[in-house]
Design a protein around this nucleic acid. Structure first.
Lengths: 150, 150
DNA sequence: TTGCGTGCAAAGGTTTTGCATGGCA
DNA sequence: TGCCATGCAAAACCTTTGCACGCAA
């Protein structure tokens, strides 16, 4: 193995990708969304470069990769300096099977289940891979309606 | 009684797919593996049919779909009569991302989170659709080995 | 100048879809 | 006989890779 990370250049594209992820650190974005956004703001970056940068940023610990989507697309999220401290991989995600909204749930009760399952059942949960599926508040109420005006 | 719903036919292909999943209920298989296996045993089934059957079996609750692979391939596993009877709707599932084993976890602590999330966060979790991903006991210990056998 | 990074396009793999045909009830 | 299911092929996606050129250091 050769650790050739010393010859690393600063490029516009790299900055664009990182800047976008940083600016939208509260969201997960797919590679497609990222490319679309960069294109829309007038600073298009090629697909290959986007993927290569995401891969690099992930290996550098600045960005985390998630498998939140049912479909074959991965999501990335900026973690920045707190990446090691933990952002989205410290909590769980709720995904509405009706409207598709993704909810980040920072909740001690839920966070405790990782410890519980590990200590009592010997299973080490990976929050980055785990998503709760169900109905969000809005869709739960919608389902209770007798009529569906949609 | 009529076990079949209206307008649903019994076909050889459907039986093949179900039989294979049933026979290998302890394993999770990708669509590709399933097609390969059916082809090897002399009863090839077209890709489109395989996917359509898997989708149907999933919606019928006989088979569960998982996103275990980082790459673009999903996995399916037979859930069988327990799934149909609704037993699995009352508890959660743990899926090992390393060996693929599926664990049915009946645990009061975990069952309580559904209530908690509903009352405190307004989100109605569907345990039948929710799976925890992580490392099972055996694989956790395997990963703890100081030497990396890989 | 050196050689890493980029863009384009093509390849690779998984899953879906259209359409004509075949098979179950 | 009706209609659903199948199979083939092509399309739709997501992601990776090869290669020549451009740009940072």
């Amino acid at each position: 193995m050769q650790g050739n990370r010393k010859g690393e250049y600063q490029t516009k594209q790299k900055a664009q990708v990182l800047a976008y992820l940083e600016t939208h650190a509260e969201r997960h974005v797919t590679a497609g969304e990222l490319m679309q956004a960069l294109n829309d703001q007038g600073t298009p970056v090629g697909a290959a470069t986007v993927y290569r940068q995401l891969e690099r940023l992930e290996s550098q610990g600045l960005v985390r990769r998630y498998s939140l989507d049912d479909r074959g697309s991965a999501c990335w999220q900026y973690g920045g300096s707190e990446a090691k401290a933990g952002t989205c991989h410290s909590h769980f995600h709720l995904k509405c099977i009706c409207c598709g909204v993704l909810i980040h749930l920072d909740c001690e009760h839920l966070s405790g289940i990782t410890e519980h399952v590990r200590s009592d059942h010997g299973f080490t949960i990976d929050p980055a891979r785990t998503t709760f599926y169900g109905l969000c508040k809005a869709c739960t109420q919608k389902r209770r309606m007798p009529d569906d005006p949609d």
